[in-house]
Design a protein around this nucleic acid. Sequence first.
DNA 1: TGAACATATGAGCAATCGTTCATATGATAA
DNA 2: TTATCATATGAACGATTGCTCATATGTTCA
Lengths: 109, 109
Amino acid sequence: MAHDHGALLDHVKADMPADELLQDLGDLFKVFGDTTRIKIMYALYEDEMCVCAIAELIGMTQSAVSHQLKSLKAANLVASRREGKTIYYRLSDDHVKSIIAQGYEHLTE
Amino acid sequence: MAHDHGALLDHVKADMPADELLQDLGDLFKVFGDTTRIKIMYALYEDEMCVCAIAELIGMTQSAVSHQLKSLKAANLVASRREGKTIYYRLSDDHVKSIIAQGYEHLTE
DNA sequence: TGAACATATGAGCAATCGTTCATATGATAA
DNA sequence: TTATCATATGAACGATTGCTCATATGTTCA
């Protein structure tokens, strides 16, 4: 410790979410913290897209994209539907757009 | 590649931000992607706080907190002021709160 | 059934990350 | 100046991450 902080700590501590939620928040933002995944989310911004289209668009291997889509899906950021051999992914949530938009604003002002 | 995607790729590609911005977005969210840094930002949610108070609050070493504050400052998420020996940190931006709030909403619904 | 296509997945490896430990910097007070 | 307090920083190490490569799964069509 160091100098005295009075009642400040107790007050702030009372307003903090539970540790598990803080962990989940970190894990969620970790998914946003990679350029490849950001590109994938932007690819799906307007409309759904199949895996190989995403791969071609962002210039990455089908395998790499598939691995990242798995992360995104685990975080409930994308959803998918099958149509024959093809699987189409889409953003599952408006939060994706608003989170990215807030980040965008932070950078460009 | 694989099957044909017609004009879809060109259309979506035209709407994508420049690579450098996408990289910056990923780097920004990477800073949110750690529980310790999330805790620090929550600690500063209401008011500024000195380093040792943050360390005591979240139960981490002064050194660890200082390292993370450096990351947060490099991303323009916190700012600081000196008062004698003590240095007070605060959130530098309302985007911090709104980004975390969006993440929170995504998790809790 | 077998071939071709679209996607998923496991292992392995280089790179990045977050903490610890020791030490440096910077400010105050005696 | 010297001692002490508050914070910052560099090196080192274990843990996690994202890609590649090879291969597996699942679907369609002949």
